[in-house]
Design a protein around this nucleic acid. Structure first.
Lengths: 210, 210
DNA sequence: ACGGTCCTCGGTCGATGGACCTAGGTCCTC
DNA sequence: GAGGACCTAGGTCCATCGACCGAGGACCGT
């Protein structure tokens, strides 16, 4: 039929792309029109192929999922984006939703549910995994939640690489004092006790690639 | 044909299982005889289906990949095991190889290479991704490398959950001094500078699930 | 011009972490 | 029974971390 839902699959693993394609191709009303392996090519492919729905993995080398979302938005692409990932942290969900994601599901979803999710998103709904919705609600409940500034993200990234404050200071050309200030702010915003927890949080949330 | 290589796919993600199955089914000499979602059912399925080669993801909920390897060995299962994972740490490779894995490849492998890897493993060869081989060689070069004791693994697991020495001491019913001794030993064996790096190492190596 | 946020840096101070050394007890192996 | 791991625990010592305080300058929108 002519009005099948056109889907673009974006994931850095060929295996996962093939799996998703196979799942979706057996659905009569879905059509996988392309695959992208990273965030940057995703934006180009979306422009070229004009998909209705983009299945987007958040964690990818090069440009990550959130960057891809921003890129799509800036390009004015009307495609709905359904984030499919294995990370559960609200700090990963919030930026994605804010960046314009229309849905957020986990990778352990079963095929029929995934197909249903794509249809829902295509219909204009915002679809969240129940756990994600709960996390989101919890995040909204505590105002000013996990919203890190750009500089704090820089520092957290270094923390999540196992760097000491001194090393971070050198790497970012800062005073060690400034680094400590940022780290303290990060700990407060993330609601964790120390840098180790912050680093783990960053990894869980997909901010850094393990 | 009757003598196709029988493959069992073990991964906790349906999407990945489907992707692998699709990749392999198009190969004339390969036959996917089953799928398992976790380590325990993997051992049962291997017993029941009698595969020639088992494609095993190291990181899974419940019983992880290494446990599954031990289980297969104890059950006397003759199947070759090809580990396919996204982790790159030598501390993840070494236990897997020691536990009887015949191969170790990354998930970003392309389909033909994966098929070739399965054939090699089935033929009795040990197949390692070049990077893995290098890591393995480097690990062997420094004797007594990253071989943690059982207790140290317990402690590292807690470290990788973001616990402080005091919390770990309470959790494991130990003195804080003892915990510090273990932590120091862990840092030395892993070749890292502090607990944050150790925690990240644990996550990368798949010892804990993010 | 004003308030707000962010980035920068400073000081102090207590808590924590980790290095290094020693040592008793257990269990296993030779 | 003599090693040799491993687990446990203590001591000392110093570096690092993180909390809490303040403060100046840049940039923003109103």
């Amino acid at each position: 039929m002519a009005d099948r839902i056109r889907v673009l699959v974006v994931d850095d693993h060929p295996v996962v792309r093939q799996g998703l394609r196979t799942f979706l191709d057996v659905q009569d009303d879905l059509e996988v029109v392309g695959e992208s392996a990273d965030g940057t090519s995703c934006v180009d492919d979306a422009e070229r192929l004009g998909p209705d729905v983009i299945l987007l993995d958040l964690r990818m080398p090069g440009a990550d999922g959130v960057s891809a979302l921003h890129g799509l938005r800036e390009a004015g692409n009307p495609a709905k984006v359904l984030v499919i990932t294995s990370f559960t942290e609200p700090s990963a969900v919030l930026p994605a939703v804010r960046a314009g994601a229309s849905g957020y599901v986990y990778k352990d979803i079963d095929p029929p549910a995934l197909a249903a999710a794509i249809r829902s998103v295509h219909a204009g709904h915002v679809l969240l995994h129940p756990d994600v919705a709960r996390l989101l609600a919890a995040g909204e409940a505590r105002p000013g939640g996990a919203e890190l500034t750009a500089r704090e993200r820089d520092v957290l990234l270094e923390v999540a690489r196992g760097r000491s404050n001194r090393e971070i200071a050198r790497a970012l050309s800062l005073s060690e004092k400034t680094v400590k200030t940022h780290v303290s702010a990060i700990l407060g915003k993330l609601g964790v006790q120390d840098r180790t927890q912050a680093a783990l949080h960053a990894v869980r949330s997909g901010l850094v690639r393990p």
